[in-house]
């Protein structure tokens, strides 16, 4: 039985959604909207944090000092993005510690793209070009998500993310203009990362139960298939500029539809990785868990120091 305030709240909420306005943390919202947002936003945050690992793998071996600096800055940005998103999610009533716990115990999901290994330097290029490129396609529409803190975090993230894709593209460009070994390295990386990056847009629309509701609530603005199509459309001319081939023999322009026809995607691979049986799932979680557990004594020390300092200052006096 809904109360009068609940009915008022719901009416205002529906109005905000219908008029494409923003929902702020203190506005009334349905429980399932709140839960859905917590799930989506915390997953997004976890993805940024886990996403640091495949690239951090190449920081110590970056083949020039400039590339080392760029890669460090990119990975640092990803930590920052995770932090912005954790902050935004906290406004919905969940703590960072709870979210971390969910991640390291395997109860929370993160983008499965990060469960693939980075086997060569060219993977840094492929990740920037394909993975960040796909992420941007997904993320720019989120700048207009109905939940305002999410939208605001996304605006900040999108501005920073555009450098990520460019640096990836430039890494590949440099490789393709380089030695035969470098060219082979680049093509091999594209061959390995192309299909997984297309899977980042999620299952086909027919198989995606959460999508429909997210779209109604204007958390999600475009369908999975739509976004995937548009993404490939941006890639084709870029691949030509690079001189790499995209590993889809059935990729061709459909004049009638005004879009590209894609070859079939192997969704069983996606399911396997999603179920935790991808190449790096265990490793990614272990690394995150180790950092968290190894760091406990440090966090406790800082908290203990803060408590002692606070106890020293008598109430009412200026610190």
């Amino acid at each position: 039985m809904t109360t009068a305030t609940e009915q008022e709240g719901r009416a205002r909420f529906d109005e905000l959604i219908d008029s494409d306005s923003r929902v702020e943390p203190r506005d009334w919202m349905p429980d399932d909207y709140r839960r859905s947002l917590i799930r989506q936003m915390s997953q997004h945050a976890h993805s940024e944090i886990i996403g640091m690992q495949p690239e951090a793998n190449w920081i110590t071996r970056a083949p020039s000092l400039k590339r080392k600096a760029i890669l460090m800055a990119k990975v640092q940005d990803e930590a920052g993005h995770g932090l912005y998103l954790y902050s935004a999610t906290q406004t919905l009533g969940i703590t960072r510690d709870e979210m971390t716990e969910q991640l390291i115990t395997g109860r929370a999901r993160y983008s499965s793209i990060f469960n693939y290994p980075t086997l060569s330097w060219a993977d840094m290029g492929a990740i920037g070009w394909l993975v960040d490129g796909a992420a941007i396609c997904n993320q720019v529409p989120l700048c207009r998500a109905s939940y305002a803190p999410y939208g605001r975090a996304m605006v900040r993230i999108c501005k920073e993310e555009s450098f990520h894709q460019r640096q990836g593209f430039e890494i590949l460009l440099q490789l393709m203009r380089g030695t035969p070994a470098q060219q082979r390295m680049a093509q091999d990386a594209v061959d390995r990362w192309y299909w997984p990056s297309l899977m980042m847009f999620g299952p086909p629309d027919d198989d995606s139960p959460n999508s429909a509701r997210s779209m109604e609530w204007k958390i999600k603005r475009f369908s999975n298939d739509e976004l995937r199509q548009r993404f490939v459309g941006t890639l084709v001319p870029q691949a030509e500029a690079l001189g790499v081939s995209l590993p889809d023999p059935e990729l061709r322009w459909n004049e009638q539809n005004g879009s590209y026809d894609l070859g079939p995607i192997d969704w069983t691979e996606f399911q396997e990785v999603l179920a935790g049986r991808g190449p790096c799932n265990a490793q990614r979680l272990q690394r995150r868990r180790d950092a968290h557990e190894d760091g406990l004594w440090v966090r406790e020390a800082a908290a203990a120091y803060a408590a002692k300092q606070a106890a020293r200052v008598p109430e009412g006096t200026a610190a």
Partner: peptide
């Protein structure tokens, strides 16, 4: 310091150490 990236005791410290490294 680059070796600490993604392994720091707290995410905010990961950002701080990366800044110093850069």
């Amino acid at each position: 310091l680059g070796e600490w990236i993604s392994r720091a005791p707290e995410l905010e410290e990961d950002v701080a150490l990366a800044n110093i490294a850069l």
